[in-house]
Nucleic acid binder design. Structure first.
Lengths: 185, 185
DNA sequence: CACCAAACAGACAGGTCTGTCTGGTGTCAA
DNA sequence: TTGACACCAGACAGACCTGTCTGTTTGGTG
């Protein structure tokens, strides 16, 4: 009964990996630890993911998927493009205020995987391209093309808030963003 | 003759560590590798630094010291505060164009050392505080208090340029910085 | 009920990690 | 010349890493 039902091990591993990889760093966490945290054997982990590398990719894809869900929620919740963009800053800040905040998982992964050709780095590019695309799409509707600038502010605030361990960078970033985005036409 | 003279091993280790830690990531490089690259025995490495952790701290301090030298060069090279600030953007970009660019060593270290109380993180905070102080000092002379904003732009450009593997984020950041800094009064 | 796939438990291989230790060698300074 | 010291060479301990393997148990399906 406490036993894992067939097909569930993969999900449990992914959840444990997400917690541990984000919290401690990818290289710092071994597959034994992930399996133990998931309450699953190493054989099950390898059966589902094949290798640690593939698990890492799956972990980032899962995070990207969850992030996309957040964006959809924001998009559904309001219609004003300006608000939609600024809501991303707020989302980051809420995210930051929860404890265990360690910055952007994708940027952290980039630090740990130096080779730009690594599959991990492709997932990172995919994620950042999607964010950029979202910003650009919203900004087009107010005749602005400052998506690049807003990306810089978001990335800058994300890393600075880890260094300083507070939300102030996001306040600064959002204030500047508000100046950059023209009000709805 | 090809032998290391007493007192030289430390410097050689530091140089090798700087290359390898920056290029491959800190956790990804073992002390054996560092010693071999330095052309020095592991015993000499431990004799000089005591532990890998302390070597990592020394590596970051050394990088901070070299960075401080760059800032001094910039400061000596021109007197206009606006130019001095914008020169930092240029310095980053030059730095980026050299191959093996892997972003900011201090931000990468932050990704690899999750514990904010770790000595590594203290060196990172020290470095970032110094950069912020430099910006603020220059900006005060033109009655601007946008040091926070410029920090965000620098950090954002640094990480984005790693993801995208080009200098465009720095062009965007510098353009916005130029708008933010008022001309000399 | 019988079977199969997927999980379990846990040992194992082969490699790497940090850190230590022994003993020999070269250099510099007194 | 001699002694102190920093280095070299390389073995070693003990922990941890990824990945594989054997054999057993269990849940879901035909």
């Amino acid at each position: 009964m406490g036993r894992t039902r067939p097909g569930d091990a993969g999900a449990k591993v992914l959840k444990a990996a997400s917690t541990l990889f984000y919290r401690d760093g990818i290289h710092a966490v071994g597959v034994d630890t992930v399996a133990a945290e998931a309450g699953v054997t190493k054989a099950a982990l390898y059966g589902n993911f094949g290798s640690k590398s593939r698990l890492v990719v799956a972990y980032l894809r899962e995070r990207d998927r969850r992030w996309q869900e957040q964006i959809d929620t924001i998009t559904a919740g309001c219609d004003d493009p300006r608000e939609r963009v600024l809501a991303v800053f707020d989302a980051y800040e809420v995210w930051l205020s929860r404890d265990g905040y360690r910055g952007c998982a994708f940027l952290n992964a980039t630090s740990e995987f130096p080779d730009p050709a690594d599959p991990v780095r492709e997932v990172v590019r995919h994620h950042k391209t999607a964010l950029h695309g979202y910003l650009r799409a919203q900004l087009e509707r107010v005749d602005s093309d400052h998506a690049d600038e807003l990306m810089l502010l978001l990335e800058g605030a994300a890393v600075s808030s880890v260094v300083s361990q507070d939300a102030q960078p996001f306040h600064v970033a959002k204030r500047l963003a508000e100046k950059l985005i023209p009000p709805r036409r």
